[in-house]
Amino acid sequence: MSWQLNKKYYPLLITFGLFILMFLYGSINYTGFSSPQVVLNLFIDNAFLIIVAVGMTFVILSGGIDLSVGSVIALTSMVTASLLQANISPIIVIPIALLIGPILGVIMGSLIHFYNLQPFIVTLAGMFLARGLSYVISVETIAISHPFFQFMANTKIHLGNFYISISVLIAIVVVVAAIFLAHYTKFGRNVYAIGGNEQSALLMGLPVGKTKILIYTLSGFCSSLAGLVFTFYMLSGYGLHANGLELDAIAAVVIGGTLLTGGIGYVAGSVIGVLILGVIQTLIVFEGTLSSWWTKIAIGVLLLLFIVFQRLSSVRGRSKTGLISEH
């Protein structure tokens, strides 16, 4: 069975290899690229995207999609900023902010499960709603000057000569918790089972409805937490924050080797997917002469490569059924 186990990790290995290759390319071509701080900066600048991508991984593993994540980040940043502006203590503000995503997630998950609506359309409505609500709070940017938020934003945790931010620690905790949740709990197994074949999962007596609602709640929570981390990063609330972020998150998950039809994929892959998106941006910054839109084209090309690769390997392997039992 050992060769089969290896095959299971192929997409993950390819993603990781690609990341290493891109990094090597940068190190050879640009001075200062190979500094460990550049790697740590990938985490610092993309901590919120890692958190969102983790939540999105569960949604996509179950065969669904969540388009609302970017808007939930905007709404969280807006609520946080406006409550802080009203002189409310962060001890109250942060729990409220963290509740926004889960509440929206429960509502979306219930609509999807109870009325059999399409995740695409329901989360699209969630996206409109969250973005609209943040505009209703204010159409202007609200700056944050609260000392606690300044502290969270500016504290550097030193590792030798290099540093990371508190947000990176939050992201790492989220990733570890998510890996545990995906591979060592009943919930995780149910997610994979639903993504593999919802009908079979139902016939096996798995709690499909409950799991589905929980998945969207979890993704909502991740978005809210990411919104908070994003707020630390930007130190402001704005209705246009994280516009189009859902696309980056979906791209990271796909590049990370998760099948968009559900059932196959890894949380760790999505993290590497985010890092690859980060490396592309860093490469373009170091190159200096390339304009920012090359990022989009590069992401598009990568998406194409991975999707075609997935398609070809699934045609050859058709090993989808075997995977569920292995977890």
Binding site: I65, F120, L247, I250, A251, V254, L260, W293, W294, T295, K296, I297, I299, G300, V301, L303, L304, I307
Partner: peptide, 14 residues
Amino acid sequence: IVATLILMVAGRGI
């Protein structure tokens, strides 16, 4: 949904 996502991302860059 995946196939057209590619153009959605890359097309705007183009």
